[in-house]
């Protein structure tokens, strides 16, 4: 028997990230899609932190939450906002 609180946190946050990815894949508005993607990246960063890989967390937060969001928002501004059917 091992203390399981960190495993419970891991399971709950992974479940929430599944819901976020589901909403993201079926979202028509690309700006909302990007915001959901950033939320998913935050949950994944917490998961990586609980899995004890601090190096990856430091690189991942800057890249996934910051740069991907800015890059994709810039691309949406330059192209089109809504995805059709």
């Amino acid at each position: 028997m091992i203390p399981v609180l960190h495993l419970v946190m891991l399971a709950v946050i992974l479940g929430v990230s599944f819901i976020t990815i589901f909403l993201m894949v079926f979202e028509r508005d690309l700006l909302k899609m990007i915001v959901l993607s950033a939320a998913q990246s935050t949950f994944y960063a917490i998961v990586l932190y609980i899995l004890l890989v601090p190096d990856v967390v430091l690189a991942y937060i800057a890249v996934a939450v910051g740069i991907y969001t800015a890059l994709l928002m810039f691309a949406v501004k330059k192209t089109e906002r809504f995805e059709e059917a």
Partner: peptide
């Protein structure tokens, strides 16, 4: 999904999930 930006975002999600897989393989349940 038809939109290319959606495809790129899904590709980043796929890559991120593979990072989770790698971190999870190295984790120890003790």
């Amino acid at each position: 999904r038809p939109n290319i930006l959606k495809k790129i975002a899904c590709l980043t999600v796929l890559a991120d999930t593979s990072f989770i897989v790698l971190a999870f393989i190295g984790y120890r349940f003790k």
